[in-house]
Design a binder for these strands. Structure first.
Lengths: 256, 256
DNA sequence: CGCCGTCTTGAAGATTCTCAACACCAGTGG
DNA sequence: CCACTGGTGTTGAGAATCTTCAAGACGGCG
């Protein structure tokens, strides 16, 4: 019965991975049967990750998470939000990474997977490994996009861009529609992600509303005029789309 | 004689890699003998990279490069600067990455290496592969740090932080001293990297000078009061140091 | 010499922040 | 049932930060 639960609860991850590489049923079951420990955490809890040395990673099965860095003056910068299907701490397992904290925004369910099990799963199925690495590298590309967003775009463009990006990501895992999605983020969280104050976020959202471009109220993001919004936000879908990697199911280590 | 030239001109890369993993002479010569095409470009030239599909990468042997993204309003955000020993386009070879442009800031010498040759070199020497991947992943960590820098730090702290980081990076390849280094960046370039206007950069540099913290004039960065500057900038050395990766000379594909 | 890129400074203006106050709602305990 | 509380959203007013426009200085280089 645990098995059954796993299969149903990995649906978001599987959907996401499939959007990158069309996995076979066999590969999917290899993935779903990866030994893991299910953990449920309530909103506001921190996901402890004991630095870079932790020999495990987490798959976010349900709920939303924020990864962030605290600054000495008490402010914080949210690096990115994780939605169902995303990995937590995978990068710090594979590569060096600036260590940051994770906080549950909603109640969440995560599956803890040991580095050892990830390695053996990668060995069992190179195409699966490729899909996972490819998904992880998309997250890297998003960080660069956020850098551009915060560095050079005005508050209104920045906000629009960010909420559009979230919409695309949610679409990939089958949540929401083209014009609307549920969003549990408070204006404070949005502010910390966009490098703005919550009060200014509020004003910006009002502007977007008054210009009939989009609304974000009561936990629902709705795009009223998607076309004009994409134009305003200078939104390029390129960095989120499903192109194939150049070096696929081996990164060069195995030679040929 | 090309061989000989290569050996001398790879000294920065070797120095950098050695700071991550103590490579043997054998491994170093494997690296230095990697077939490559030397290219010299004058300042201001763009390094053409034909999108993500390019089956090659570059090693920056000498000079400085900026990687950046242009925005439709003509402004740009510089993602990072590359200094001698850094790789260009390696990530887009291994992983997906938001594609950006490269521009030579000074006259530069780069070595073009094909994906094929990188793969076979990685196969020949796993420890070398590990060192290179580890170096590349440090650059990822820096992007996150830049995000925090731009998102949540004031102009003066941001500038100080960035110039300190550059100093550490240059020290790793044996350029400059603890308190001083040559820096070919114009105030315009610095502005585009920090998400500020060049005029404001100028004022910020003056403030730093007037507070006897540091100077940046005539192409020389000098730290007058390193300790106070590090405190002001909230600078953590952690993400640049030389810790070992968790998964070393294989990323999991080869099993164990 | 003249030109161009860079640095510098002033002044005005735009964007964004901080402080403060209030509305709303869900939950909680009396 | 109601008062209280804490989290969130909203709005106003003033202040700080940063940008834009404008002008001039300096140095390298054709």
């Amino acid at each position: 019965m645990k098995e059954k639960y796993m299969i149903s609860s990995t649906k978001f991850v599987v959907k996401k991975l499939k959007s990158f590489i069309d996995l076979t049923d066999n590969e999917i079951s290899t993935f779903s049967s990866m030994p893991s420990r299910l953990i449920t955490l309530s909103a506001g809890r921190e996901i402890v990750h004991e630095g870079q040395r932790a020999h495990n990673a987490f798959i976010l099965l349900d709920g939303w998470v924020a990864s962030y860095k605290l600054l000495p003056d008490g402010t914080r910068q949210i690096i990115d939000f994780q939605i169902p299907g995303d990995f937590l701490g995978l990068r710090s397992l594979l590569l060096r990474t600036s260590d940051h904290s994770f906080e549950a925004i909603t109640e969440i369910t995560i599956a803890e997977v040991s580095a050892q099990n990830i390695k053996s799963t990668f060995a069992k199925s190179p195409r699966l490994a490729s899909a996972i690495l490819w998904a992880a590298s998309r997250d890297e590309a998003m960080v660069v996009e956020h850098l551009v967003n915060i560095g050079r775009r005005s508050a209104i463009v920045r906000t629009a861009h960010f909420l559009l990006e979230l919409g695309i990501r949610l679409n990939l895992i089958g949540v929401g529609t083209k014009n609307s999605y549920p969003c549990p983020l408070s204006q404070y969280l949005l502010a910390d992600a966009l490098g703005l104050s919550a009060i200014h976020i509020n004003r910006v959202l009002r502007q977007l509303r008054e210009q009939n471009l989009m609304t974000f109220q009561k936990g629902i993001v709705h795009f009223d005029n998607l076309e004009k919004l994409i134009e305003l936000a200078d939104f390029q879908v390129g960095y989120l789309d499903q192109d194939e990697p150049i070096i696929r199911n081996d990164t060069g280590h195995t030679g040929h």
